[in-house]
Design a binder for these strands. Structure first.
Lengths: 158, 158
DNA sequence: CCGATAATGAGCAATCTGCTCAATCACGGA
DNA sequence: TCCGTGATTGAGCAGATTGCTCATTATCGG
């Protein structure tokens, strides 16, 4: 059972409104939620201060940049060299995100590539990083559920 | 070698500007890139039409909602039931994203949870979905490289 | 019952947006 | 070389939004 976060029901409604209508102005959100503009403004400011809302970010589709392929590369690394490996991974432009995970595999690396050869090259480059012992590449074939946060927000309203 | 996407160098500079300064106005972007406001406006409109730029979205931190834990759950499913499984996963609020991947495991499921017990419960719920044969949960311990797109944009400038 | 905090309504200057229009520029085909 | 299409530019304008301040009112806990 998730403990209450620092957001209350009103905050959740604000966030839900923003999640569903990203271009909505502060005024529109205030109207929709049923609070005054000033309240909406101060709450939004607080949410940003808290880090709950990362102002707005512009999500850019890698496919539009010429990288239609996405893959998860898991890697086993020499634990002692974890930070060095992370730094080396950060130098690979096609690496979008790296997470340290529990279990037999140490790293979850999200990469994009222009085509299969490109992906093979990138996987090779990662494997060549000192400290990387083994890698395993899983190509993303299909988005079955697109990234979303609204179900969590809806639940916070109850 | 990635083939050229539908974005040219100017588009890339616009996107880079937006990625680095998400709150920048159209005017500010135009100035920074060195193009007129009209050009910036029409290019931005085109990028949105193309789907390269998803207008703006508000990224909300699950941790602020009371879900500090993130995990990757991989699952093997009965291939024939893939769509049904996906639909069932979409009904789980804590499931943020589901991708069909190549390899011995069929699904990559990103979930968030309030605590370890919560995660255990969610994993159980997923395993109980008809068609899900096996699951494996990997807890995200640390963000080593935060999601980013700027390196790809910088490369597109050359 | 009182006090601190939050919410509200009002107002204001500055800015941004969406849109239109006409002129100029760049580039490839005839 | 000339022409035409599409992109770019500068200008302008009405309307909306933003960030901010102020005073007043509500709300909730001690």
């Amino acid at each position: 059972m998730p403990h209450d976060g620092p957001v209350d029901a009103v905050d959740a409604r604000i966030l839900l409104e923003l999640a569903e209508h990203p271009r909505a102005t502060t005024l529109a959100v205030a109207d929709r939620v049923g609070i005054s503009r000033n309240t909406a403004q101060s709450r939004l400011a607080r949410l940003e201060r808290n880090g709950a809302l990362e102002s707005f970010e512009h999500r850019i589709a890698p496919a539009a940049l010429g990288y239609p392929l996405t893959a998860f590369i898991t890697a086993q690394v020499t634990q002692r060299l974890l930070d060095e490996v992370a730094a080396a991974l950060a130098d690979v432009p096609e690496v979008l995100q790296v997470q340290g995970i529990s279990g037999p595999v140490d790293l979850m690396i999200q990469v994009v590539a222009g085509d299969a050869d490109d992906l093979y090259r990138i996987a090779g480059r990662i494997l060549a990083i000192p400290g990387v012992e083994r890698t395993n590449t899983a190509l993303v074939m299909r988005q079955l559920v697109d990234y979303r946060i609204t179900p969590l927000l809806r639940r916070a309203l109850r």
